[in-house]
């Protein structure tokens, strides 16, 4: 528990490196919602293979790393199906309407001091904090 922040920093560095490779290599902004969403709505048809290759890497690396890791790797997601479905819909719709999520607006946007990235990040963090306050502490749902 005490080393969580070190692993956070190391993992964060890898995420930033991933964004740097995507930008300097392919000339594209690494945003998870954009990469997935472009496959769903067809707007990324011309770059479908590189999107799929990216997602393959995202899925496979944790599978390779899992046996090397001796701590619990569960996601601890809630078992309330209604909450899971509502959350998934909101994340999907919201990230695409806003044209970015934690990786695109958060990591790639803030690092170039983008006004849109910073404002988006402030709003989704405030909304997330409010959601926890209401649904956990007031309603006791999550």
């Amino acid at each position: 528990m005490q080393q969580d922040w070190i692993w956070g920093l190391v993992g964060g560095g890898l995420i930033g490196l991933a964004g740097a490779v995507y930008l300097l290599g392919n000339g594209r902004i690494m945003g998870a919602s954009g990469i997935i969403g472009g496959l769903v709505d067809g707007s990324g048809r011309n770059t479908a293979w590189e999107r799929l290759a990216f997602l393959l890497g995202v899925v496979v690396l944790p599978i390779i790393l899992t046996p090397l890791y001796n701590v619990s790797i569960a996601t601890h997601i809630t078992d309330n199906w209604g909450v899971i479905i509502a959350a998934g819909l909101l994340v999907g719709v919201g990230s695409r309407i806003a044209n970015g999520c934690t990786s695109g607006h958060g990591v790639c946007g803030i690092s170039r001091f983008s006004l849109r990235g910073i404002v988006a990040t402030v709003f989704y963090i405030l909304a997330g904090g409010l959601a926890l306050a209401v649904f956990r502490h007031v309603l006791g749902l999550i």
Partner: peptide, 19 residues
Amino acid sequence: LIIGSVLFGVGWGLAGLCP
């Protein structure tokens, strides 16, 4: 940008997962 980020943030908080 604003409406999308608010919707995304609520979903992110509810489940603790983003894309």
